[in-house]
């Protein structure tokens, strides 16, 4: 009884804490752990310059003699101790991971944002207009789905490089990467938004807006978009994990960000060259970080999908 008669909290935060979704979050240990892990990684990446003990991209602070120092052991020549060891150039692995996660997360978020914007726009148009516009957009989407998205990202990356003068290639690489990953992932958003739009556009609240002659763009953005965002947020969360992995894959293949600005994928590529010569730490720690990041974001997405699905409650 007392549970039922608890006073409803007031204020924005109080109401958010009291909401169904917050309750479902508190009830799910997996979601809490995943949220804590991703939060630590994201904060570490964002505040990398403050946290990292060394600046791995300042050649002046690097000492080649420090190269290949194992974790927690003093270097044979300099006596320096590094938590997670150093790589071939004497860069502190812990610091490179922090900076690498920064690049990975930036590319991931930006690519998801790009894919989301593109997918939502095209999905809304296809779903609302219907007819040949819908057919055209969805056939393009179908064709794109027949290619593995990583292959498509490789293609876009290659084509874009052909258009960019060599002097700008290094500076533009990260943006090209974002566009390439974004373009290869928009289909998911477009399909979901199109389906939801087709359901929403026939609802009477949309008809009420049409009766008073509201502009179609206004109807799409103000009426339909807020009602189709639920599933989009779920795909976006899982899409973030996918984009981070896609970025790592491309960087691992050597077509991603330049080695002067290594992401987690680049670090793994560098590390795998030394795996068989016994310097396991250069590969292992970036890999664990990537795994933890992708897994925790993915688990969060899974939880969000279940929490927002009324049929699974």
């Amino acid at each position: 009884m007392t549970e039922l008669h608890k006073p409803r909290p007031t204020g924005r935060f109080g109401r958010a804490w009291d909401s169904d979704i917050a309750y479902s979050f508190r009830q799910s240990p997996v979601a809490v752990v995943a949220a804590v892990v991703s939060l630590i990684l994201i904060l570490g990446a964002v505040f990398a310059p403050l946290i990292a003990p060394y600046d791995p991209f300042n050649p002046a602070s690097l000492n080649l003699m420090d190269g290949f120092t194992p974790p927690m052991e003093p270097n044979a020549f300099t006596g320096n101790v590094y938590w997670l060891g150093t790589d071939n150039q004497g860069r502190d692995v812990f610091s490179t991971i922090l900076y690498g996660a920064r690049i990975s997360l930036f590319v991931g978020f930006a690519a998801v944002l790009f894919a989301m914007t593109l997918g939502i726009t095209l999905g809304l148009i296809a779903g609302y207009r219907g007819g040949w516009v819908d057919s055209l957009l969805m056939r393009v989407a179908d064709v794109q789905l027949t290619f593995p998205s990583i292959l498509l990202a490789l293609l876009i990356f290659g084509v874009a490089r052909g258009f960019i003068p060599p002097a700008y290639r290094e500076a533009m690489a990260i943006w090209v990467l974002i566009v390439a990953i974004g373009l290869s992932e928009w289909v998911q958003y477009a399909r979901v938004v199109r389906g939801a739009t087709m359901v929403e556009k026939n609802k009477e609240y949309v008809q009420a807006a049409r009766v008073i002659g509201a502009h179609p763009v206004k109807i799409l953005l103000r009426h339909i978009l807020p009602n189709v965002m639920g599933p989009v947020l779920v795909i976006a969360t899982i899409g973030l994990a996918l984009a981070i992995i896609a970025e790592a894959t491309l960087s691992f293949l050597g077509v991603g960000v330049p080695p002067t600005q290594p992401s987690l994928g680049t670090l793994i590529r560098i590390g795998q060259q030394y795996l068989f010569s016994g310097e396991w730490w250069i590969l292992l720690f970036p890999s664990i970080t990537l795994l933890a990041l992708a897994l925790s974001v993915n688990l969060l997405g899974d939880w969000l999908r279940d929490a927002l699905n009324p049929r699974l409650r």
Partner: peptide, 22 residues
């Protein structure tokens, strides 16, 4: 047409669908 639209309105059947839930 805007002037004309102002002069008529519609009430719908399902009050659960005719108000935007957001």
């Amino acid at each position: 047409m805007r002037q004309l639209r102002r002069r008529f309105q519609m009430i719908f059947q399902d009050p659960f669908a005719s108000l935007n839930p957001r």
